[in-house]
Simulated scan of single mutants.
Amino acid sequence: MADWKTSLPIVAKALGKVSEANALLEDWNGRVAEFKKKMAISSRRRPFLLSACKGTAA
């Protein structure tokens, strides 16, 4: 399956929806950046640890 961000501009051009696709990608990239920012802040407050090992109970 192709990456949707690679396919979107091709489909958008074919449908005459380039500006809408660009707006969607801009919104998506902003949301991802905000999520990464929140995750970085959260991980500084509470370290995330995985302690379960195969074959052992947590």
Score class of each variant (00 low, 15 high):
K17Y: 01
V18E: 15
A33M: 07
T6V: 13
G30R: 02
L8H: 00
L25H: 03
V18Y: 00
E20D: 08
K36I: 02
L8R: 00
K36W: 05
E34F: 10
D27P: 06
S7W: 09
A33Y: 10
M39L: 06
P47V: 04
L15A: 12
A14M: 14
I10D: 06
A40H: 13
R45H: 11
S19L: 05
A23Q: 02
S42L: 14
P47E: 07
K13E: 13
P47M: 04
K36S: 08
K37N: 08
A14C: 11
R44F: 08
A21R: 02
K37M: 02
W28V: 02
L24Q: 09
S43G: 07
S7T: 07
P47S: 08
L8E: 00
L25E: 02
I41S: 05
L24P: 00
S19R: 04
W28G: 02
W4C: 06
W4H: 06
N29T: 12
L50G: 07
T6L: 13
A21E: 01
T6M: 12
S7M: 10
L25F: 09
S19C: 06
P47D: 09
S42W: 15
L15N: 13
F48M: 13
K5C: 05
A12I: 01
N22W: 04
L24N: 08
L50I: 11
R31V: 05
I10E: 10
T6I: 15
F48C: 12
W28K: 05
R46N: 15
A33E: 12
R46E: 15
A14V: 03
A12M: 06
G30W: 00
V18H: 00
W4V: 07
K17R: 10
W4N: 06
F48T: 14
K38P: 01
N29L: 08
A40K: 13
F35T: 11
A33C: 04
K13T: 13
